[in-house]
Amino acid sequence: MGKKRKQSETQAAEPAKKDEPAPERPKRTLLGWKNKEEVEKQTESNPDSSSQVFRNKEKVMVTCSRRINYRYRHLMLNMVSLLPHCKKDNKVESGSSKGATLNELIELRGCSSCLFFECRKHQDLYLWMSKCPSGPSVKFLVNAVHTMEELKLTGNHLKGSRPLLTFSSNFEKDAHWKLLKEMIIQIFGIPKEHRKSKPYHDHVFVFSIVDDHIWFRNYQISVPHNESDKMVRGGLDKMTLVEVGPRFCLNPIKIFAGSFGGPTLYENPFYVSPNQIRALEKKQKAGKYAKKVKAKTRRKMHELSNPLEPDEFADMWRE
């Protein structure tokens, strides 16, 4: 009974303070009711107070499937080092029931989103991005992986400094790209004033859609400095970027409404799974032999159909 009273008390006390931020919530957390008109009205009435109250409490759980190979594991670790607001968890068996276990794990760790690196057959890497409790979730195929450890990526930056997120303009083209952009901003953007973050900005993330894939790059910003911390005049023109890594390319496969499941909202019409590609290759190789056999039979048929004329000089020298 006491409990209930307390709750009611707090509820009674808070409305006075949190009158304005309260209507925001339905928009963010998706609890079912979406009275947009109301929300808009509220936000219009006092926009500055809402922005004051807004706090990004994003936490990302990063984990991977079992039997991941080292390259992809390193990629995952690189992501962990890039995102100070993430929590790394143990490997998860990637079976049919992984969705449920993952959801449970995320809830246990108190995270609001998840990056799940799923490795299949020791060679194909799938990346799941999911907003936790109520979706959506995206499954990507990851290509062209280069980890930060590669020596040709020569940049370096502060650990935990907030990155600038740059998106190519074609993210606004389609609904699914828009959704992906929003998810990326939430997952890869480090919350302002996160306790592990640093107050400077010395690297840029690039998300660019080329050929219906999302390409990821991470660059260090380097500007010639004077002795003091002030930048040189015209330093903006001399600004250069050095790549830090990692690099990868995300090929979206499917977007689900829920977290690790639910109805499919989007399906990539051009997607061919790597298994199918390999099968195709094999088939082509097998086709080589079939072709030879076919050619042989065709030749035989041809010889049968037009036989050689008997040579009149054949037994000329035979006596």
């Binding site: 922005s51 979706g135 959506p136 907030r162 190519s168 074609n170 939430q186 953007g189 660019s208």
Partner: peptide
């Protein structure tokens, strides 16, 4: 529709300060 709906669900309030997002759209 489903996608847009989801987008609405998860997106931050529209008037969120840029400092929170730090996102930039660049024309290709």
């Amino acid at each position: 529709d489903g996608l847009l709906e989801k987008l609405q669900d998860i997106s931050w309030p529209e008037n969120v300060d840029w400092m929170h997002k730090l996102s930039l759209d660049i024309d290709q």
